[in-house]
Amino acid sequence: MATPDFIRELRVSAGRQLLFLPGVSAVVVDDQGRVLLARRADTGGWSIIGGIAEPGEQPAATAVREVEEETAVLCVPERVILVQGMEPVEYPNGDRCQFMDICFRCRAVGGEARVNDDESLEVGWFTLDALPPLEDFALMRIKQATEGGPTWFAGMQEA
């Protein structure tokens, strides 16, 4: 994911210290039940769509913006499927971040899936029985989105 300008500005005064940032991800499903995925330019791996909320931006609006920016697909958020604080990460330049991910199930409503920015190498629709190799991060979110369970909150015990 590209570093937003507001984070670059923060880094001027914050240096490499740990920043806690609002992350948003989206499991976009079309009318055929397929899931929208992108093969990331930074890792080469396939994943769901995600990004960082801009200052003052609501999380659902971030999901819609990120999906359109990265894939040219228009979508509508239907529900929150997961809220999870992620483990801190350290980037090769020494910057440290910890993301709070809010994941939405979204319904595709228009656009044609294609690479729409420099963050993705490929974009495509996949049936659940033909998903490419994915990290647990994406698999868990796809499962939550397609099985219709309640919102999952990290660290909470089931009743």
Rank of each mutant, 00 (worst) to 15 (best):
A145T: 13
L139Y: 07
D117H: 07
L128A: 14
V123T: 00
T146H: 00
R141H: 10
A130K: 12
V123H: 00
L131F: 10
M140E: 15
L121S: 01
D136R: 15
P132Y: 08
W125T: 10
V115F: 03
E135Q: 11
A113F: 07
I142W: 00
D136A: 15
L131C: 10
A145Q: 13
A145K: 12
L131N: 09
Q144S: 13
L134E: 02
E147C: 05
L128G: 15
D129Y: 03
E122F: 04
L121G: 08
P133H: 01
D118R: 12
V123Y: 04
S120M: 15
A145H: 13
M140Q: 15
R141D: 02
E135C: 01
V123M: 01
V115G: 07
G148D: 07
D117E: 05
L139E: 12
E122Y: 00
A138C: 10
L128S: 14
A138L: 06
M140S: 12
R141Y: 03
G124N: 09
N116G: 04
G148Q: 06
D118I: 00
A130P: 02
V115C: 08
G124Q: 09
E119L: 08
R114C: 08
P132F: 05
D136G: 14
D129M: 02
S120P: 06
G148H: 08
F126M: 08
A138V: 05
A145W: 14
A130Q: 12
R141E: 10
L121A: 07
T127Y: 08
G148F: 04
P133E: 00
R141T: 05
A145V: 13
L121Y: 02
E122V: 05
G124I: 10
S120K: 09
L139S: 11
K143W: 12
P132V: 01
L134A: 00
F126N: 11
D117L: 05
D136W: 14
T127C: 07
F137R: 06
S120E: 09
A113T: 09
L134R: 04
P132A: 03
E147R: 09
D129Q: 06
D117P: 06
D129T: 01
D118V: 00
G148K: 08
G148Y: 08
P133S: 00
A130V: 03
A145D: 14
R114S: 11
D129I: 02
T127K: 10
T127D: 10
E135W: 03
L139D: 03
L121K: 08
L134F: 02
L134N: 05
T127V: 04
N116E: 09
T146V: 09
V115E: 07
E119S: 14
G148C: 05
D136E: 15
I142Q: 00
L134V: 04
E147K: 04
A138N: 02
V115W: 07
D129K: 03
L128R: 15
E135G: 12
L128T: 14
E135R: 11
T127R: 14
A113S: 10
D117C: 13
L128E: 15
T146L: 01
E147T: 14
